[in-house]
Amino acid sequence: MRQLLYISSSATRGQPIDVAPIMAQSVRNNRRDRVTGLLYTDGVRFLQVLEGEDADVQRVFDRIRADPRHVAIVVLHNRAVEARQFGDWAMAKRGANDSADAFDARMATMLDGASDAVRGTFLGLVAARRAA
């Protein structure tokens, strides 16, 4: 089992990202490719962890690297894991009616089963968003 964590930036600097079609496409593609994980976006950056069999995770990541909506893709870790830390595909997105506190609490719940490194990376980006 492979776990890959990366961060990237939106290629549309200064332009709002329409997250809904990204969510729908990601859910379809990842279900098809048997990849699970968590994707967080603050509208500027994407932070995603992918989990699955080595070839499946690589195929998804190759597709992401070829996606012109992403720039400055940096792999934070790419390692073998015993089991999935994210049982189902999930994507975190702050809705128009979500308070920052409610959104942050939902993120923390989604990260309950994650390793300290993965949880810290996601919560660090959430904290940076709050500080901005």
Rank of each mutant, 00 (worst) to 15 (best):
N29W: 04
I22E: 02
R63K: 11
I17V: 07
E53Y: 03
R45K: 14
V60W: 01
I22T: 05
R32N: 09
R34Q: 15
R13V: 08
R32Q: 14
P16F: 08
R28L: 12
D56C: 14
A55L: 13
I17F: 01
G37N: 05
A20S: 13
G52W: 06
I17L: 06
R34C: 05
V35W: 07
A20N: 08
N30V: 06
R28M: 13
V19F: 15
V27M: 11
Y40P: 01
R45S: 12
D42L: 10
D42F: 08
D56V: 02
L47T: 15
E53C: 00
E51P: 06
D62N: 09
Q25P: 00
Y40S: 01
S26L: 10
G43K: 04
V19H: 08
L39V: 11
R34T: 02
R32C: 04
D18V: 11
V27N: 00
E53T: 03
M23R: 03
D42H: 11
V60A: 02
N30I: 10
N29L: 12
M23C: 05
V44P: 00
R34W: 01
R13A: 07
E51L: 14
R34F: 06
Y40G: 03
D62G: 14
G43A: 04
V49Q: 09
R59C: 02
T12A: 12
Q58R: 15
R32T: 09
N29V: 06
R59S: 14
R34K: 11
D42E: 06
A20C: 01
D54H: 13
V27Q: 12
L38M: 12
V27I: 10
D62T: 08
V27Y: 13
